[in-house]
Design a protein around this nucleic acid. Structure first.
Lengths: 222, 222
DNA sequence: GCAATAAACATACAATCTGTATGTAAATGA
DNA sequence: TCATTTACATACAGATTGTATGTTTATTGC
């Protein structure tokens, strides 16, 4: 099913015996602190994993392939991560962090609750338009780690914007009182679906219009 | 990681040599047409698979376990289905059909578009409250088969209600014109999230209230 | 009614994959 | 400097998937 012409997946390309490895700086770059080594292999693994998980999905990507791409061995992988899912978790954390950063950075002042929400939504769509993000965060993530853990990750990385926005709108009278948790949840789902559709080539304007209409229906521009 | 004290997973419990197998009716039940045999093993497989997929998820359920539960061999499985995913597909088709039937049966007259939608939503929640349905159709389904194929399945089994409802509302003037596809999609996502939350123990009334509020905002009761 | 064929499995096998156990070299701390 | 961690590298055990190949039971053409 999966052809793999590479016979030597179990060992890295050329044993970097530290004696022969010298940085282009001329200085002997082989003496690295443990922290440096760890950080470097960790990020190499996460980077390679991200690429492959995006390309072929979590289930279809094997650890031998990941370590080959990262130029390390499976020993390194299992030294840094409990298992394959744990590597995936780390990958998702970074991705969620990136999304949160993107949104936080792009957040601007808004005159009304409606405007704030609409801008937030657009910002979210922009952040999620980075290739692979939708697959990682909205497709494989929930399936592999479960919705509960995905919610945790979102919360850790600061995906509280929506809830806070709604709370503020309610407080300010723009939104009639209702169960905050539930409304946050279903709105978030709508945003996610829109992001997914857009990422898969659907007309972004249509989805943005639909989202905007939904928000207009909920929020009085008070 | 997964203990399995059964050593003989590769063959069924007791070779039903057809000579010794007699139905409790007294008559010799061993002469069965091919269609009967096929139907019987197919349904046994799907039934066992459904139970296990719900219990442990798609990825954590192996085909040896499935065939053991269904009292057949892996040979039978791979005779009837192309692969594990294909069995999963068949399972989901049945489940989607059941949901559609449930909803269709419960559909009643409604005075307004809003009422029709609200009732439809409640009906959907009721249908999705059957244990395991949410996991199959909303979690593992999209992850294993992809959203595209899930959409196909929904369409095959008649999950067009929502789109038609919106189309009707627009036509009747209760809903201002907008991209139908997009609106259908995000509303459907909101419904799904609500169903998922409810299935996982969240207060159903909260989610129903939130959904209703969303619909009220969109639909003028004209 | 019988031979030929096809359907419905049953069994064995090859290729992988995951996680663990164990061995080794490089860094770190006393 | 020496003991101890840390950071891997390698080997291995168990399990899984899909396929190839028998074997038995129904169908079908004559």
């Amino acid at each position: 099913m999966q052809e793999n012409s590479d016979k030597s997946l179990e060992r890295p390309a050329a044993k970097p015996s530290a004696k022969t490895l010298r940085g282009p700086t001329g200085g002997n770059a082989q003496r690295r602190s443990n922290k440096q080594r760890s950080e470097s292999t960790r990020s190499a693994l996460i980077s390679a994993a991200r690429r492959l998980f995006v390309e072929k999905g979590y289930a279809e990507t094997g650890t031998p392939e990941i370590v080959a791409a990262a130029q390390v061995t499976r020993g390194a992988l299992y030294h840094h991560f409990a298992d394959k899912a744990d590597l995936f978790r780390a990958t998702l954390r970074e991705e969620a962090r990136a999304v949160a950063d993107h949104i936080e950075q792009e957040t601007e002042e808004a005159r009304s609750a409606l405007e704030a929400m609409t801008r937030g939504a657009d910002s979210y769509f922009a952040a999620m338009s980075v290739p692979g993000r939708v697959r990682l965060l909205l497709l494989d993530g929930p399936a592999v780690l479960g919705h509960a853990e995905m919610a945790e990750i979102d919360q850790e990385t600061g995906g509280e914007e929506l809830r806070q926005g709604l709370a503020y709108a309610m407080e300010k009278g723009a939104l009639a009182p209702l169960p905050l948790e539930a409304m946050t949840s279903i709105l978030s789902a709508a945003f996610d679906r829109a992001a997914l559709a857009i990422a898969q080539g659907a007309p972004a304007e249509d989805y943005k219009a639909a989202i905007r209409r939904m928000l207009e229906g909920l929020l009085k521009r008070a």
